[in-house]
Computed example of a mutant assay.
Amino acid sequence: MGRQRGGRAASSPRRQKTGASSGPVAGIYDIDTGTCELLEDDYLPDGWVLEINGVPSSHIDLNDPTLLEFEYMRWIAMLVESRFASDSRLRALHLGGGACTMARYFAATFPEARQVVVEIDGRLAELVRHWFDLPRAPRLRIRVGEARQVLTSLSDGTRDVIVRDVFAYDRTPIALTTVQFTRHAHRVLAPGGVYVVNCGDFRDLATARREATTIGSVFAHTALIADPAMIKGRRYGNIVLAGSDAPLGDSPALARDLLGGAVPAKILVDDEVQRFAAGAPVLDDSEAPPPPTPKAPAPKGGTNTAEE
């Protein structure tokens, strides 16, 4: 779920395209979890918007992988870039793929990065590889699977950054927010690694507060990034939360960059995040229904374009 800079004009429905030519083609497509719609950006000649089951999911500019139209993605990028040098061999795990916008950005800004994107929808992964110029393995691998099942299977200390950006319509599945899930993220991260999540919430901020408490119960340091109106509970939107065993948000340049963006944002850290959470309870597995089972795409001509 994302909100674009300056908003978008309404787009009229377009019929499904079934041509075999490479590259994006506007239309509605059947995927394993419902439908997705690929829309041309009304303002950027090489821009595309991906909606999944009617909810904006991703934006891609074919000519500029560093262009992030969704402000929460810019906030995630700023946070990660404040912690890691551009020449570092960043090991990134993305839980939730969409159009792989964030992974494509990291590939451009961290040329030595090695990334895995976990996407539950095999057909969507196949389409995204077909539409967009994504780096190939080993720089970027797309693994079809359910995020929690994949995370729990990974070895200790093998990732520097974990980005969770998973939505079922307009909510993250509870099983991907609990303290048990967060402990697995902590286990998989290398010392000083960063766990960062995109939390979509309503004006009561109940979900964001519980997620902040949960992340804070596992990691020594926490951070929260959002625009002031969202922090004050004035609208529905996105809040970025992060956890690490190393201090977060201690760079003055990060605070300045966040305030200077197209949608100015504020960062809260540690005690400020605790005050925001205001005693909200930790999220627990007992509240979560069983996770869905991923469906891998059927091989075509002996080749599965969703890379394992």
Rank of each mutant, 00 (worst) to 15 (best):
I225F: 03
V188H: 10
N238K: 10
A229Y: 08
A185P: 07
G200W: 15
R210T: 03
P191F: 09
R209W: 13
G249L: 05
V240F: 07
D245A: 08
Q180A: 02
T177N: 12
H186P: 04
P247R: 11
V194S: 01
A185T: 07
E211L: 05
Y236W: 14
T214W: 10
R183E: 15
D227M: 01
H186Y: 06
H221G: 01
A185M: 12
I231D: 06
V218R: 02
L248F: 12
G216P: 02
V179P: 03
A208L: 04
A220R: 15
T213L: 02
S217D: 06
Y236G: 11
R183A: 10
I239K: 07
D245G: 03
S217I: 00
P228I: 04
A226N: 02
T213R: 01
G237S: 09
R203A: 15
V218D: 01
D245N: 12
A223V: 09
A223N: 05
A212E: 00
Y195I: 05
Y236K: 14
N238F: 14
L224F: 11
A208N: 03
F219E: 10
S217G: 06
R210W: 04
M230D: 09
G249Q: 07
H186M: 05
G216T: 05
H186D: 05
L224S: 07
T213V: 00
Q180E: 05
R183Q: 15
G192F: 00
A242C: 14
V240N: 07
N238S: 12
A212G: 00
I225C: 06
T182V: 14
T177M: 14
R210F: 06
R234S: 07
R203Y: 10
T178N: 02
V196K: 04
A190D: 13
I225T: 07
T178C: 01
R203S: 15
P228N: 07
G200Q: 14
F202Q: 10
F202E: 14
D245E: 09
A242L: 09
D227R: 03
S244M: 08
F202V: 11
K232L: 15
A246N: 00
V194H: 03
T177A: 14
D227G: 00
A190I: 08
K232F: 11
A185H: 11
C199Y: 00
G193R: 01
G237F: 10
K232Y: 13
I239P: 02
S217Y: 01
L224V: 07
T222D: 06
A212I: 00
L224K: 09
A220K: 14
H184F: 13
G249D: 08
R183H: 13
L241I: 04
D227K: 01
L224C: 12
Y195D: 04
T213F: 00
V197L: 04
